[in-house]
Every structure is written in structure tokens, then in C-alpha cells.
Design a binder for these strands. Structure first.
Lengths: 343, 343
DNA sequence: AAGCAAAATGTAAGCGCTTACATTCGACAC
DNA sequence: GTGTCGAATGTAAGCGCTTACATTTTGCTT
């Protein structure tokens, strides 16, 4: 024998009844306390507490058209690549009373689309997306719904979309420059799958450009595409080193792959960097505990997350696009990169 | 000059109008197509497509009381500890058409509570929580709302809550046994902060129990609590090694701390494991690329995530608690653990 | 003490959807 | 042709909330 009032989830009407006021007053109390008399406020708050009332989010969103929620769709949660940036993003949002919902798309375009729609249907006021590349229908949909959107982890001044990120190509060019400057001529590349991943593609083309500028044939590059995982880095490294001429440097699309690569290179009996140099990208914590520590591109993850949040909040509030922000990356030269061995 | 029909987000009424049917038919078409004539279905689907209609989630949840959504609140997204398990969890849910929402609580009880409430307000049908320890009000609230809940990453046969996990104490005892068996008598421990973290606490007490069983004084243990980060592992290791008598083994609360510890131990000029042994917990990918590879406790993360999902779905569907599942952990003895140096 | 504007509160209309119930339709038996 | 019945569709009532508007109360001024 359950009575409506004590078993079910309390509604605003229950609170109103208990406090002896109307539902409107309760609502005001919750949304803008300054609009109600302190004495009334007290009564309502007590009722809320006693009942353990939480406003039904769906109902609220239905009428208010504002959810104070933003969504982020990231390619993967499997490793720490996005962790730090997302963390900063969330912190900045939370400070403003906005909740972050995270969904992982597992590097699958279809799945990403599905996740975006899920977030939209849930009424996300804004969206954080990684990289530019996705179908035009999605962008059309976002625009039609007037959902504020920020692209991170990439930067393209020519895109109409607001982005807070860095130029992947430029960043990788700087690193590749450092590798080539040390005399390396045969370079193995372990990249993420470049189909539908503009960041991975930009990084690879950064390397190619450097080679071209140095007058080196692109055939000196051996590229393997694989998914982002330590294990994959190991396999790919083993594969690269089995070819002739053997590369003297292995450049990886991120630190995770590089960590695997270093491990495998050493397991095969080569020294790093005396025999083979290895580089990463991202400069996550992992880079520093590699043996030897990884030469990589430092990405200002926290700053990126923080500024992306501010840009997004601004867009939501003002209802119009904010300017894109280009962040600077930095070379971090550590022991995993050395001069090309003289053969 | 925007017309209602083309600029705004389409509603079920727009679809109904365009298809020349009632909203009820559209709804049926979406929720149970078999209830609708194929010809009608066709018309509706075409209208849906043309309008780019997506049902408003809030409205649907408001009336249907079912969201096909489950939430997971994890302590951190900063490292990969929960990544693999969560991945498997999500995969299993997705297979059944259920969406996963993830929130991070950053190891802060208050924040966790807030995140849980957020998920509840959003109508999550079920919840995945990590570890048992949290305030009783939360549990009361969950019960009152009838939200299916599964606790993972821990296992306690005496708890009324359904859990899918492993016995942290037992697992750590096995590892500590292996350490003690190799002659180590002075052991440094780097643990997560144990306040409001039952898993960390259980692991530490596992170590203590082994010492007690071996008749060794607990004072042989030097314990440092810190947050889960590679850097923290480094600092803690440096601190531990500065004491006399210097521990010959450092047992860490997880692989992330251990990775930092190994790095620091070697940086200080000690050899691992000849001078100092180091152990971890979790057996994430990181463990294998440490130098030397980490001796650790293997946790069946994917299996845990998968079975947690099944248990949760079952609970949601049947409306009653499912039996808890204890998963077995395994010792992974790798090179970071060696015999105690004879001094 | 009366009058009035401002502040506080109440009333009630929907937001977009599902679903119980009512209605219409068509196929079939007679 | 009529009657019957199940299938297909429509009608309309809310779900829990916010908010425009109406009403009451409060605190002043005169």
C-alpha cells in the first residue's frame, strides 16, 4: 500500500503543497530566489529538503529551452589523450553551473553522428567536437538547431566554425624538422587511421612537407596506419624495422603509439636513440616516463580545454559565433631523439 | 523573417501534418512500427526524413518514464584505469540500444553526489557506480526512485547492493604475499587517498594482513597516500626512499602510481628490481611498457564492464536486484619484482 | 486613514510527447 | 447487402515544469 506522497519521486506540486504555496512560487524559489520573500523561501527550501526533491530535468528543458548542459563527443576514452583537456573543460563549465555530458565515438564517424544526435535530443545547449571532419548534414543540423559548437584539437583559420586548437600540420612540421636536422633520412611513421581524421592526416602531411622542402623523396617515408593503442605501436614498430632500408627514426602520431614503439624497438635489441630515434605527439604524462623519455610535441591541453569552455559559454549566451583561437604547441626534445647513426 | 516550419526544430506535429496523419500515428510509427499500415509508415518515414526530425528526449522521458539511458559516475577520466572496463560496459549497452552517459567525480564525494543527482534528474534508468562507499542518503534516494544500480570495481558479498567486481583486499593480499615471499621485509606503500575510497583502503589492508600473518610488525610498512597521477608516484617514491630503513619494495595502489615510482627509483640511481622492487595494480597497458615491466594484479576489466552491463540491464527490465558477481583477479609477475637484496 | 505603486504570489496555459480510449475502416461470413 | 469484428487511426488527457498575466499584499505617501 504505497501512498503517492511518500513512495514516488516528489514533484513540484508535492513541494508546493507541503510548503503551502503555489507551484509557481516553488519554481521561482529554485530559479531566481530573489523574487520571493525570505520567509517563503525558507518554507520552500525546507519542503524541498524534507522531500528530497530534484526538479525533473526533462520537464524543465521542455519548457525552458535551456538545459545548462553541454555535450562533448570525443573519439576515445581509452587513453589519456583527451583526458586533461576535457578535465579543464569540465572545470570551467562547472564553475558556471553548467554540466558536461561526455560521449565517446570510438573513432567511428557513424557512431559519432549518433552520439551527437543523442546529445542534441537531450537538449545540449552547446557541443564540443574534436576536429573538423564530419558530414555536412551534421553541421546543417547543428546550425538549424542553433546549437553553439566549438571544434577543438584542431585549428583552421578558414573554417567558418569556431575552433580552439592548434595547427596539427605546423606542429608536426616543427618536430619533423628537428628529426631531419639530426640527419635522419629514412623515417618510419606510425599514424592513426587517417580516413575521417583530419588531425592525423595533417600530422602526416606535416612530415611529408618537411621532406619535400628538404628535397628528400617521399619514398623515404614508410607509413603505417593503425588504431591508437600501445599494442598497436608495438606491432607497427616491429613491422617498420623489418623493412630495408631500416628507418633510423620512427615518428608516431601520438605518445601512446610512441610508447609502444619505443618498447618494441628496445625489445628487438636496438638502442634508443643511438640506433633508432622515436618521437610522439601530445606530451601526455606517459611521455616522461618512457624509457628514454619521449621527444614530442607539447600540446597545451588544459589551456585548450579551458578556453574552449569559455568560448562555448560565450556563444551560448550571446547566440553568435566566437572568434577562433589558435594555441601554440611547443617542441619537447627529450632523450628519445638523437642524431642519425653513421652507418 | 523566419517561418515556424523551416527554421525551428521540427516537432511531432510538424511530421504529422506533413504526412497527413495524426501525431499518435507518428508516435506509433517511431515506437512500434508494426502497429501501423506499411503505406502509412512509408509516408511518415518520408516526412521524418525530409524534416530531419528527432524526437525530443525530455518530452519523451516525461511521459514514458523510460529513457533507455544509463549513467556511470567514475572517479576520474584522467588516466586509463576505468577506460577499458567502461568501454566494454558501453559496448554491451549499445548493443541493446541503451545510451551511456558518463560523468567524472574527480574523487570528490560531494561532487560524485552531485553527478549522481544530475544523472537521476536526467532520468537515467540505471547507474553504474564505482566502489561502495558513499553517503546513505544517496542510497536511500536511489532506492526510493527505484533506479537500478550496480557497483563495480569492488565486491562485497555482504552488501545488499548488486556488485560486479573483485575483492580488492584478497587481490592485494596475493600480491603482497608474492612480495614477502621474496624476502622483502621493509615495504613502502603508495596508496590513493583512502578517505572515502574503499578500494584503496581494502588494498592497503590486504598488505597489512599479509604482514600480520607473517608475524612482521606493521611498522615495517611506510604508507604514503596521494592522488592517482604519475607525477604523484614519483614524488611519493622519492619520499619513501629517503627514509631509513630504506624499503626494498614499493607497492603501489595502481599501475599509474607504479609507473611514476619506477621512473623515479631509477632516476635516483637504483636498479629495479635488483635494488628496489616495485608493484602496481590493475594491469593496464601501461604496465607492460614500463621499464622493467610491472608486476601487478590483473583485473579483468572488459569482463567486468560487460557483465556489469548485463546485470544492470537485467535489473532495469525485471525491476529487481540481480545477484552479485565476483570476478577473479590474477597475479602478473613481471620483471619489476625481484628477490630482496641481501644487504 | 485612504490611495497607490511596487513587490509577492497565484492561476493557468502550454512545452513535445505517449497512450488509453473512441472512432472509423475494411474484410469476411452469411 | 448487412452485420460483425479486428485492425488502423484519431482524439485528447496529461507527464512536471516555467512563465505571462492576473490578483493580492505590502509599504509608502499624503
Amino acid at each position: 500500500m504505497e501512498t503517492k506522497s511518500d513512495s514516488a519521486v516528489p514533484t513540484i506540486a508535492d513541494v508546493a503543497r507541503r510548503a503551502g504555496v503555489s507551484t509557481a512560487t516553488v519554481s521561482r524559489c529554485l530559479n531566481d530566489p530573489s523574487k520571493v520573500q525570505p520567509a517563503t523561501r525558507e518554507k520552500v527550501q525546507e519542503a524541498v529538503r524534507a522531500l528530497g526533491y530534484t526538479p525533473n530535468f526533462g520537464a524543465r528543458a521542455l519548457v525552458a529551452k535551456r538545459t545548462n548542459t553541454v555535450g562533448a563527443v570525443i573519439p576515445t576514452m581509452d587513453n589519456a589523450i583527451f583526458a586533461r583537456g576535457l578535465q579543464a573543460f569540465q572545470e570551467a563549465l562547472h564553475e558556471q553551473g553548467v554540466t558536461l555530458l561526455v560521449a565517446s565515438a570510438q573513432y567511428q564517424p557513424d557512431f559519432e553522428e549518433e552520439q551527437i544526435r543523442t546529445l542534441l535530443a537531450r537538449g545540449a545547449d552547446g557541443l564540443l567536437l574534436i576536429g573538423y571532419e564530419r558530414g555536412p548534414e551534421i553541421y546543417a543540423e547543428l546550425q538549424r538547431r542553433g546549437v553553439a559548437t566549438v571544434v577543438a584539437w584542431a585549428f583552421d583559420p578558414n573554417s567558418p566554425l569556431t575552433s580552439v586548437g592548434f595547427d596539427n600540420r605546423k606542429a608536426m612540421k616543427a618536430l619533423a624538422g628537428a628529426v631531419v636536422a639530426r640527419g635522419h633520412r629514412h623515417i618510419g611513421v606510425i599514424s592513426a587511421v587517417t580516413a575521417s581524421n583530419d588531425r592525423a592526416r595533417d600530422r602526416v602531411s606535416g612530415i611529408k612537407e618537411v621532406l619535400a622542402e628538404e628535397g628528400l623523396p617521399v619514398s623515404n617515408l614508410r607509413i603505417i596506419e593503425t588504431n591508437y593503442a600501445i599494442e598497436s605501436g608495438r606491432y607497427a614498430a616491429a613491422e617498420l624495422l623489418s623493412h630495408t632500408p631500416r628507418p633510423t627514426a620512427i615518428m608516431c602520431g601520438n605518445d601512446v603509439l610512441a610508447a609502444g614503439a619505443i618498447r618494441e624497438v628496445r625489445r628487438m635489441g636496438y638502442r634508443v636513440p643511438e640506433d633508432i630515434s622515436v618521437t610522439g605527439f601530445d606530451d601526455i604524462e606517459l611521455a616522461e616516463i618512457c624509457e628514454p623519455p619521449l621527444t614530442t610535441v607539447h600540446v597545451p591541453h588544459r589551456q585548450m580545454g579551458h578556453r574552449a569552455a569559455l568560448a562555448l559559454l560565450q556563444m551560448i549566451r550571446e547566440g553568435q559565433a566566437a572568434p577562433s583561437i589558435e594555441l601554440k604547441t611547443e617542441l619537447r626534445v627529450r632523450d628519445s631523439l638523437g642524431p642519425c647513426p653513421t652507418s
